[in-house]
């Protein structure tokens, strides 16, 4: 059962690791703006789709874009 010393040490070490990660992320300013990243995240996905459409339409004919 002396292994419990080891386990305890590991568990505290892991906990400290996460704690350090938290401190690092706060210091880095990740919690300063919690809104914009949530919007920004959605851009790239749609941008790729849009570019594909653009390419397709430009292959076929003139790019006529309509708003639906």
């Amino acid at each position: 059962m002396n292994i419990i010393y080891m386990l305890l040490a590991i568990s505290v070490f892991v906990a400290l690791l996460f704690f350090a990660a938290f401190i690092y992320s706060v210091r880095n300013g990740q919690y300063d703006d919690t809104y914009t990243p949530s919007v920004r995240m959605l851009f790239e996905d749609e941008l790729i789709i849009e570019k594909k459409e653009l390419n397709k339409s430009s292959n076929e004919s003139k790019p006529i874009k309509k708003k639906d």
Binding site: A15, I23, V26, Y31
Partner: peptide
């Protein structure tokens, strides 16, 4: 001033453990 978040983090971390 982010000290309150740090303090909260420290207290929460210690509380759980």
């Amino acid at each position: 001033d982010r000290s309150l978040i740090y303090k909260l983090g420290v207290a929460g971390f210690a509380f759980g453990n």
